[in-house]
Computed example of a mutant assay.
Amino acid sequence: MAKRLRPVTAEFLELAPTRLVFVSQLRAKPDQVFRELTEDASTWPLWFTAVRSAAYTGPPPYGPGAGRAVTLRGGSRFVESVVIWDAPHRFVYRVEQSNVPGLLAWMEEWLLAPSADGGTVLRFTMAIDAALTVRAAVRLARPGIARSVRAAATRLDARCTGP
């Protein structure tokens, strides 16, 4: 059964007990990346293989307050709400409910900045508060999460720029 998590604000991205931050350089422009991140959640499994399914829970137009349902490989499920939709620079959502035991609060941020070569510097942040055992597990999983995020960024870039 899904458990409701503590609602947090954007400040949580800096204050969370566990923060994982990953930076990637993409060839695609920020507006291309932002559209791929936000327009159709159902495309996420095409570039982020840890995601089994994702969908907005209501009709468009999407923006702050929009709901999303996400299932990861392995069965973790999340009900999320969009907190910040600042095209083409920042996309932030928090987890409202999850079936993962021990989670207390979770927020993710996709920050997109133009790079000197005309592409995008992507900074992805996971901010988590959880039981001590879950926080330890997340820290131990960091190298695997980093590989997954790096691979997702590469596939996201390819979807934005083509072959």
Rank of each mutant, 00 (worst) to 15 (best):
V70T: 08
V70H: 08
V70Q: 12
V70W: 09
V70L: 14
T71N: 03
T71W: 01
T71Y: 01
T71C: 10
L72E: 10
R73Y: 07
R73L: 12
R73T: 15
R73K: 15
G74R: 15
G74F: 13
G74I: 12
G74H: 14
G75T: 08
G75E: 04
G75P: 05
G75L: 10
G75R: 01
G75H: 12
G75W: 06
G75Y: 05
G75V: 10
S76E: 09
S76V: 08
S76M: 13
S76P: 10
R77S: 11
R77N: 09
F78S: 08
F78E: 02
V79I: 14
V79F: 06
E80G: 05
E80I: 11
E80V: 02
S81E: 15
S81N: 04
S81P: 05
S81Q: 15
V82Q: 03
V82C: 07
V82S: 04
V82R: 12
V83K: 06
V83A: 11
V83S: 11
V83Y: 04
I84C: 14
I84H: 09
I84L: 11
W85E: 02
W85L: 03
D86K: 13
D86L: 06
D86S: 06
D86W: 03
A87Y: 05
A87H: 14
P88F: 08
P88S: 08
P88D: 13
H89T: 13
H89I: 02
H89Q: 06
H89M: 09
H89L: 10
R90C: 15
R90H: 11
F91H: 13
F91Q: 10
F91L: 07
F91T: 10
V92T: 10
V92G: 09
V92L: 05
V92K: 01
Y93A: 07
Y93K: 13
Y93R: 13
Y93M: 12
Y93H: 15
R94D: 10
R94F: 05
V95I: 08
V95Q: 08
V95H: 01
V95E: 08
V95L: 00
V95S: 12
E96Y: 05
E96M: 07
E96V: 08
Q97H: 15
Q97M: 11
Q97Y: 14
Q97V: 11
Q97W: 14
Q97G: 11
S98D: 01
S98M: 03
S98Y: 00
N99Q: 04
N99P: 14
N99H: 01
N99R: 03
N99T: 06
N99W: 04
V100S: 00
V100K: 02
V100Q: 07
P101G: 04
P101Y: 02
P101F: 02
P101K: 04
P101H: 00
G102C: 06
G102T: 01
L103D: 03
L103W: 06
L103M: 08
L104E: 12
L104M: 00
A105E: 03
A105N: 03
A105F: 01
A105K: 03
A105T: 03
A105I: 03
A105W: 03
A105H: 00
W106R: 12
W106N: 13
M107D: 00
M107T: 01
M107K: 02
M107G: 01
M107F: 05
M107C: 05
M107A: 09
E108A: 07
E108D: 06
E108C: 05
E108L: 02
E109P: 02
E109F: 09
E109M: 07
